[in-house]
Amino acid sequence: MSLNNNLLSIASRQYVYKLKANSSGVYSLIFIQVLALLFSLSGIQSMSSVSETLRVNVKYFSADIIISFTFIWIFFMSLRLTSINSKTMDFTLVTNRLSSHLSNIGLLLTTIIFGSISSSLMGFVLKIIMYFAFDRSQIGVNGFYPVFSDILLGIITTGLYMTLIASMGYLLGILIQIHVLFVVLYPAALFGLEKVNPQMLKLSFDFFASETSPLLFAIRIILSSLIVFSLSCLLSNRMEVRK
């Protein structure tokens, strides 16, 4: 018998295992991103301005839908990681709760890196399609050509948002494990909050979305995600390991 198996070595073994086990997640991500790409081809926003002699119809294009879809996808991915089935899979082999959480978070971070890069770059596929398929004389060159620093910033921001969303999904998953009623309670609480104090929800949203300094934004997101993930770990300690 050896008792020298430390947490990190087990967690990293679990991480590799889970990475392989969840590799099929790539199909749903591709499916969703391609679907979002098709939606994006009709523009994400349109506007018209009219004067007596001139009518300007403008359609805006960006990867916003693709990124939003990816956000929702990561939410469900993280939710799924807390399901009884995933837990049973963990506890079929060597694990404890902490190593299970750590490997889940590792998996989520990897997924987030993949998701943020792919969703941000998908915008260029959109542009290339537009370049060849649409009447180019109607297309503005502004924003067509890639600027490396902008892409990088976009990817990092997308990844940070995904981290926050993943932490929320993970928390919801743990809450559902504690009581199924949380499936309803979680959104109901959000809407209730909206009704009682609309300002508060907006404030918490603005707390992230209105931050214009990348550094402050990153700090806010990372700290919040850490808090939410830690909360999930603490809450899961209330439960038995496996029924």
Partner: peptide, 14 residues
């Protein structure tokens, strides 16, 4: 193995 097995990584590994 002289450990409390609940949620123990050491025990789980063995």
């Amino acid at each position: 193995f002289s450990h409390n097995p609940f949620d123990s990584l050491q025990v789980s590994a063995n």
